[in-house]
């Protein structure tokens, strides 16, 4: 956890907050990282999450939360710089490398992540996962899309519906 001085003027030593997952695991992170979540930011600004209190997140399990926090910790310094207008090309390339690697995971984890990012209102993470899922759909035939997304092979009726669809949407397959 590299913690560069944020220079916010708010505080000297980095303020820590505790988040509690649905399965009761406690995560202690810097307030700056947790504040990437618009939802948490309000609570944190109000002084919540410190000391022994902790902020309960009943919709996020510990596996998902630890992944979410990994993202927040990595992105917090850039976010503190206001979207990092003065970040070096190296910093940006490193974040991009991290992002690509970060979403290289099981679909089920991707879905839990995007759900958590949605609930916690972490815009960057939401778009990152949405883009990843969109990339999985791009340039594929209907059957490939079904298989990639884990839909079972179509029943004869569904197949007939698919054929009708492909006729109607012919322009989408040229």
């Amino acid at each position: 956890m590299a913690a560069p001085e944020s220079g916010d003027g708010n505080n000297g030593a980095a303020r820590m907050v505790t988040l509690i997952s649905s399965d009761n695991t406690r995560f202690e992170v810097e307030a700056a990282a947790a504040s990437l979540s618009q939802t948490l930011q309000l609570t944190i600004l109000d002084g919540g999450g410190g000391g022994g209190d902790g902020i309960p997140l009943p919709n996020v399990d510990s596996a998902t939360l630890s992944k979410v926090l990994e993202y927040c910790i990595k992105h917090a310094p850039a976010a503190a710089n206001g979207g990092a207008p003065n970040a070096t090309a190296v910093d940006r390339a490193e974040l991009e490398r991290f992002d690509n690697e970060f979403v290289n995971i099981d679909q089920s984890v991707l879905y839990s992540l995007i759900m958590a990012a949605h609930n916690l209102e972490i815009e960057g993470l939401q778009s990152l996962v949405a883009k990843k899922v969109a990339d999985m759909i791009k340039g594929k035939s209907p059957m490939e899309i079904r298989r990639t997304l884990g839909f079972p092979d179509p029943t004869p009726e569904e197949q007939a519906e698919m054929n009708a669809h492909m006729l109607e949407y012919g322009w989408a397959y040229e």
Binding site: K138, I145, R146, Y169, W171, Y173
Partner: peptide, 8 residues
């Protein structure tokens, strides 16, 4: 056209 394909 890619989005349209998800209609299947």
């Amino acid at each position: 056209h890619e989005a349209a394909r998800t209609s299947i």
